[in-house]
Design a protein around this nucleic acid. Structure first.
Lengths: 177, 177, 177, 177
DNA sequence: CATGAATGAGCCTTCATTCAT
DNA sequence: GATGAATGAAGGCTCATTCAT
């Protein structure tokens, strides 16, 4: 059912008719409403599942790579995640009052993960220090949104440019005396 | 009537009820349909008006500024344009078949203007040379999309990072022998 | 359209599907909703038309009959009115929050008419003085409600008993010295 | 379960969702349907329980009071019964074909009880003789229906008026030679 | 040409009812 | 026998779109 919802969200957007989701999942609409009384409950559930994997990747990366590389790799993964889950990105800003809590939930969950990677990379002087996780999360999401006809390659290229932009303003650490 | 449509598109999105637009314009819905039989006709018309102003700004800037500055300023203006006309950006990728032609039209109109600015800036070695107008146009549009709660300031900041990214990979011109 | 609504209210109750009314009236549901956005608007409109005739009968009766007779005749007419418009009587107490304002409206309209008749009859000593218009209006409505299988004859007979009850406790006016 | 049904019928009417009743009774809906396959079965069951108590009160009253007093007291009790069991009264005339048999059952059960009281009171000349149990049962039920906002006090007062009406036309018994 | 009333398709949502566990 | 998840029919309501005036 979550699978069905995800699929429909991608193809028809978050505002797709409930029936479409129910049909694809092979259940009645009633069942859908029983499990997810609010539309946002469904979106949130789909979101959560996807987001968790993203969050989980953080620690492993920072343990096995240099700060800058870890950050880049994580962003790559996040890009992949967004580029594949088209439609969910826009759900973050749908304006639907029932979905208003979603971005906050998302930030709360993913923010710390990215925050750790950013801090480490900034501390090692590889990127500028004045970027918040929120900034990057939203910006990358935006860069992945237009991908309809461009494909993931476009997204990756644009994100790479953005990351370069963070390096451009980096402040190298003081050389030790 | 175009004014009304623009206003409604901004506040209620491109899918807003036709009546809302007609009311704001002070006309009947019939009149709206007479002039714009298809919803996309209206979107297109609004778009064109906005786009034209954007295009017009190009020559003046390149005539009065150094290439890099001209580019930055134009992008600033474009950012402003997008940040203000919220909702139209997403219309570019709405999936509605009737609107499918819009991005192409947009590229065709604005592409050359930005292309000239990019070429000049690349030739002077201020930015990398492997960025197409399409790349930048879409990327900036993406960066402006999430702005709901962030405001134009966020957009401008992210766009600045992206532009820094272009500088990061710049190749200085060969010094002439 | 009001005719259709009245007919459906009588046969299927005030909670009848909107479509049923629309079909009978030969219009689309949209038309119904345009004219009567709230269900209660429709009920009220039907009510109003019927009630007005009732109200209008008051002055004529009190001008041409003795107080007690005028009252009895008016109640007869009201009984007739209710007995015919079955279903509307129950609407006065449907519990539907949207219809909650209806009884108040009804009382406001009919109350004064009956009030005048009651006062006159009480002043002449023909009936007891401690009955309010509201009392009688509701009581008679109640007596007319069960009529499904009894028919108007039953209603009239019961109302007559009730009116007798008012006479039973009457206080004759002081004989003048 | 009958208790729960009664409670819900009072607060939410006879058309209340089955789930509401099941929840209040602390059972699953399935259990409800097992015991009462038809909605009317449930209504009937609730009815019967209540009605039986009413019937039982008759003999005791006529044994311990004068005919007129016994009648008045029983009607008081019946009024109480109806005023408390709001919603059931209207169910008697809901139009639902499955409930059509209910009024007949009710009359059959309660009719004789009230009949005995009426006959006694008429024989003693306290009330008129041309009132049937059915008349009074329905009339009192009607007078108790509007009680939503009036409360039981209103019902009692109106019923008292009606009883006065019966006294108004009473024929005193011939004095014995 | 402008108008806005009328239409009805389509989506949301609620529940009565069934049935596998 | 009890349970409650699943089902889908039914009704409310909202517009997009047409067309008589």
């Amino acid at each position: 059912m979550l699978e069905a919802a995800k699929a429909v969200f991608i193809t028809s957007g978050v505002d797709a008719p409930a029936k479409e989701i129910a049909d694809l999942a092979g259940v009645g609409v009633g069942t859908l409403y029983r499990h997810f009384p609010q539309r946002s409950d469904l979106v949130k559930a789909v979101f959560q599942r996807e987001v968790d994997a993203c969050v989980a990747a953080g620690p492993a990366l920072s343990a096995n790579h240099a700060p800058g590389t870890a950050l880049t790799e994580w962003i790559d993964r996040y890009t992949e995640f967004l580029a594949t889950k088209r439609g969910l990105a826009t759900a973050l800003h749908s304006g639907d009052p029932a979905l208003e809590a979603l971005p906050a939930y998302f930030m709360e969950r993913v923010g710390p993960t990215l925050g750790a990677l950013l801090d480490a990379a900034a501390a090692s002087g590889e990127i500028r220090a004045d970027v918040t996780p929120r900034d990057l999360l939203l910006a990358v999401a935006g860069l992945c949104a237009p991908v309809d006809h461009e494909g993931a390659a476009f997204s990756r290229r644009m994100v790479a440019f953005l990351m370069d932009g963070l390096r451009y303003g980096a402040v190298p650490p003081e050389p030790r005396g």
